[in-house]
Nucleic acid binder design. Structure first.
Lengths: 64, 64
DNA sequence: ACTTTTTGCAATATATATGTTGCATTTTAA
DNA sequence: TTAAAATGCAACATATATATTGCAAAAAGT
């Protein structure tokens, strides 16, 4: 399933996938695939994304 | 760094590393290494552990 | 309309999470 | 204080997250 919460938080910060990717030290494709729900990212990467977007794990990666 | 919150939550539920591992479908070693802070687990595994232990991602995997 | 930026997709390569087995050590229980 | 259970550790094998490149399509800006 797509991660719409992540995409929304990224757009709220006015960042492109590529900019977010650079901030957290991964490739643009990795961010794109996480937003599309086609990847199972590592905890470290999730935390890095959260900190860049000023969110917590529950905010962006917890379902239900 | 060790994940003491995870270990504490597991012991609170009276589960051994092996029992938790079976519940979430990984090996005992994987659970042990996560508790020791020597692994960077996948988001899916983190969520499975949280649900088994009745916790959220922020409860067990968010620092500071 | 046209240009630029952003995003999706596919193929191949690499790093690392995870599995498996076996054994040593510590902890728990009798 | 001894046996059993739980945990740590190490080596090797496998699956998959992630990188890289290039191109196509869509979105945004002018």
């Amino acid at each position: 399933m797509k991660n719409l919460k992540l995409k929304t938080a990224r757009v709220e910060k006015d960042l492109s996938q590529e900019e977010l990717a650079k901030h957290v030290g991964v490739s643009r494709q990795t961010i794109g695939l996480i937003e599309l729900g086609k990847y199972n990212p590592s905890l470290k990467l999730c935390v890095a994304i959260c900190k860049t977007l000023s969110k917590t794990l529950d905010d962006l990666f917890w379902e239900e």
